[in-house]
Amino acid sequence: MPAEFIRILIGLVAVAVSVGLIGLVMVWVERKVAGHIQRRPGPYEVGPNGVLQPLADALKLVGKQLFMPDGADPILYWLAPVLSFIPVLLLFLPLPVGDGLMALDINLGLLLILAFAGLTVLSLLLGGWASNNKYGLLGAARAVAQSVAYEIPLLLSVLAVSFVAGSLNLAEVVKGQGTWPWNWNIMTQPLAFLIYIVSALGETNRAPFDLPEAESELTAGFHTEYSGMGFGLFFLAEYANMVVVCSVATALFLGGWQGPVLPGPVWFVLKVSLLMLLMVFFRWTYPRVRFDQLLTINWKWLMPLAVLNLLATSFFVKLAQFTEVRW
């Protein structure tokens, strides 16, 4: 067991470092992409092409005074940003970056991710509730309704894939897919992939589903009152969450580290970046949906579709078992 323990420890350190790094890089990428979409350069003064801009911003955030509104609950108020960030670190552990390159090789990796991903909503609720702000409260209420709703289709679409693969271990699921795109699960489960992507946007509160922080309605929603690193942690957690959902999507649907010519981890990172870029493009293209529409999309469309998909998948899986035909 000590070997496993050391492995997790190394993994945790690597994850902590990489989450910070990914956060910085993603801030830069998002701003740069947003800039180019809007036909402006984005950050370009600090460092070559502005690559050091996120670092400067992070320093600024760290240097800022942390303050708490009058009447806020001090414990919950400061617990919230920390609580939003810590579970995200755990989410990285079972992600298979390459063949055998994962911090925690367990059979229930997928379950662990889904379980801890559900924890982030608690931090949003606490943050919004504890800051004694009406906008924060409304944002928190939205966050809970949204996250709870979108977790279900997310879960159902993921289940469909693990039915096919017969495992909840992400590495096993990846190994079940082939090198070429037509061997990937997206070919057999396109509907599940679509549902997954939409639910992931909802789950990570990304535009067009960024209702909990809809700034034209709720100023900044649940993090209205947070300043400095309190806000910074929420921010970082959002990007880290994005990376996690994209990584899971890559592992489940896009063949994970599998790919021709290039080594596994490169493929993995490439696929994740592509998905992230797509999410960034969504944000800078679409208007925000309304809150009731958000729930309508979930309960009236994604849920039934996901259930149907799951039923059909299990039917075919059983059929395949009976006829002994691999498909």
Partner: peptide, 21 residues
């Protein structure tokens, strides 16, 4: 229409910027 929107932003993403540095 969502795809059409992505096409528009994708096109401008590739086109040169309009801002003067």
């Amino acid at each position: 229409s969502l795809m059409v929107g992505l096409k528009v932003t994708g096109r401008y993403f590739r086109e040169p910027q309009r801002t003067v540095r």
